[in-house]
């Protein structure tokens, strides 16, 4: 079922991660993602992975949900890491025809798998513990300096909010339309690639039509409530930083320092 997709979903809760300032959370997650791609040996990578696992446990969201969000991209992880296996440099340890595997390739394979997994988990922590409103609010605040360059920050944030808001609605709609077309005998499970692509038309067209209809309705409703993006409304919920935010920043800074030290003093593997 489509509703099984948990990637990008929000799980309301009261954990320490839920209560962190969303701006801080967003910056720290970005920092962690950069770290994932700058850790070049097992010690540094271990440190980053420990940070991600700590985040998962602190979030209070069942680990099962994280595994579910991984399921969707398992194929990409497997594909890229296996591809990387054959792109290593140095002495081959296994050769078959033109394909060769080197120790470097094996490391690359392991690291890329860890990286993509950690990347997804990291962003899952952010979206699982932060409501879409908080997320866009934080984004708007963080992008505020761009206003100087005439970037329509508020509009972008609004677009993001609306897009996120409609993800579950459209999923539900897709489910309904699929049921209706199946009831008319639409066959989506068999046939070749072209056949399958063709069988999506009866689903995509009604979905687009209904998305446009919803967009019109929403625009009308916003218009009726005098929405105007040129005016800057005051915020109902002001963002405040607290002691826990400082603690979170310090923890991530320590991990950054650890990774940098590890990268400098230990040999790079991948």
């Amino acid at each position: 079922m489509l509703s099984d997709i948990t990637l990008g979903q929000y799980f309301p809760g009261r954990s320490i991660l839920h209560r962190l300032d969303p701006r801080v959370k967003m910056v720290l997650v970005l920092a962690a993602i950069v770290l994932i791609f700058t850790a070049f040996n097992f010690a540094s990578m271990g440190l980053v992975v420990a940070l991600v696992i700590a985040g998962m446990l602190l979030s209070g969201v069942p680990v099962k949900m994280y595994l579910k969000s991984m399921k969707a991209i398992l194929f990409i992880v497997a594909f890229t890491s296996i591809l990387n296996l054959f792109y290593g440099t140095g002495e081959p340890i296994f050769q078959w025809g033109f394909m060769q595997i080197t120790m470097n390739g094996v490391y690359r394979c392991i690291f890329i798998a860890i990286r993509i997994t950690a990347l997804i988990l990291c962003s899952s922590i952010l979206t699982f513990t932060t409501s879409p409103t908080q997320l866009t609010d934080a984004m708007e605040r963080l992008m505020k300096p761009l206003k100087l360059f005439r970037v329509p920050v508020h509009d972008i944030a609004m677009i993001m909010t609306i897009a996120l808001r409609f993800v579950p609605t459209l999923l539900e709609e897709t489910d309904k339309i699929m049921s209706a077309q199946k009831a008319r005998g639409a066959d989506m499970e068999s046939g070749g690639l072209m056949q399958r692509i063709k069988s999506l038309i009866p689903i995509l067209i009604p979905l687009f039509v209904s998305a446009f209809r919803r967009a019109y309705d929403l625009a009308m409703a916003m218009e009726c409530r005098c929405y105007n993006s040129r005016m800057t409304p005051t915020k109902m919920k002001q963002l405040h930083m607290a002691g826990r935010d400082a603690v979170a920043i310090v923890v991530v800074l320590v991990v950054i320092a650890g990774v940098v030290v590890g990268d400098i003093f230990l040999p790079s593997l991948a």
Partner: peptide, 20 residues
């Protein structure tokens, strides 16, 4: 199971949204 769907025809709520 598809054969069953032709014998038991189902019209959903607000079926106009399925037109394409």
């Amino acid at each position: 199971i598809r054969a069953v769907r032709f014998q038991v025809g189902m019209v959903f709520q607000y079926p106009e949204y399925q037109l394409f």
